[in-house]
């Protein structure tokens, strides 16, 4: 067991990263909860958003945090277009039941393959980072030195999660989304058009990635394959928290951030990543409804 002086900062770091993970997972869980789609392209869309942010910062001189509203809008448009252009038509064309489930899963996989390799063509396989004047600034907290950009990202991520929750519970659009998630036919009778709501929900889910990308980039790198590492992480969070559960995604995000950080510390650099996959498998095999999900 490492001494507390190493364990505690590692724990805090994991928690801070977990906040951004939670935002990524919120998008995924929203899409699942409303559309009942397992969005396998989630990691690749995050990668795309990170490259978008990277371009804004290096080419247009944006600060990554200032790029956030731009990226949220851009990724919302991307998600909306993707649903209207690819996923919606596939879902409509595949009939229903098991076949539809598989067709949609494979369509999101196809989107992931296209995006990953599109990025490879455009940007080559190099890893890229951005330079910010505050990248290495630290804040002393209770005898520990906490990275400032991580702290900012954590705070902004939780604020955005709160804003999303307020949007879902307090606005008409949010209520319409929840109505469609619960009872699509009933919502239709109330004058809500489910197809528009699906595109809206998918757009919002992907917009979360635009925000997450801006929060990640000051402390993370981007490469065309970076999405792969986020796919398993975000699905683990969503499954752990319960598919479709908002509080589950947030708490799951924090837990997985800590798991990852402690896994790296206790098991070492090469064996550490096994923690996430093990949690994922264990939850799916032993408690598929997650910590906060209702029994299926």
């Amino acid at each position: 067991m490492p001494p507390l002086g190493i364990l505690l900062p590692s724990l805090v770091n994991g928690l801070l990263t977990g906040g951004v993970y939670a935002l990524v997972a919120l998008g995924l869980t929203l899409i699942y909860g409303v559309l009942h789609i397992v969005n396998f392209a989630h990691g690749s869309l995050l990668m795309l958003a990170m490259f978008g942010t990277w371009l804004l910062c290096t080419e247009a001189g944006f600060d990554p945090y200032a790029a956030l509203p731009v990226m949220v809008a851009a990724m919302f448009a991307m998600g909306w277009a993707l649903y209207r252009g690819v996923i919606g038509p596939v879902a409509a064309g595949a009939g229903g039941g098991v076949r539809q489930d598989r067709a949609i899963l494979l369509a999101t996989l196809g989107v992931a393959v296209v995006l990953d390799n599109f990025a490879l063509v455009l940007f080559t396989g190099d890893t890229r980072t951005i330079d910010t004047p505050y990248a290495f600034d630290v804040v002393p907290v209770g005898g520990m030195l906490i990275s400032l950009p991580r702290l900012i990202s954590f705070g902004v991520a939780l604020l955005l999660a709160l804003a999303l929750w307020a949007f879902m519970t307090r606005t008409d659009a949010g209520r319409a989304i929840r109505a469609v998630a619960r009872e699509p036919d009933g919502a239709r009778l109330m004058g809500i058009r489910p197809e528009r709501i699906f595109a809206l929900a998918y757009g919002i889910g992907i917009a979360c990635l635009g925000a997450a990308a801006c929060l990640l980039l000051p402390v993370f790198y981007v490469s065309p394959s970076v999405g792969n590492s986020f796919v398993l992480v975000s699905f683990t969070i969503v499954v752990l928290g319960g598919m479709g559960s908002f509080p589950g995604a947030v708490i799951g995000g924090l837990l997985i951030g800590v798991t990852e950080s402690l896994g790296g510390l206790l098991l070492g650099e090469s064996l550490g990543p096994i923690g996430i996959s093990t949690v994922f498998i264990a939850v799916l095999l032993l408690r598929p409804t997650g910590l906060f999900g209702a029994a299926r």
Binding site: G110, V111, A112, V113, V114, L115, D116, N117, F118, A119, L120, V121, P224
Partner: peptide, 8 residues
């Protein structure tokens, strides 16, 4: 990446 993109 171009060929793999076409796969998708």
């Amino acid at each position: 990446g171009f060929a793999a993109m076409l796969y998708g």
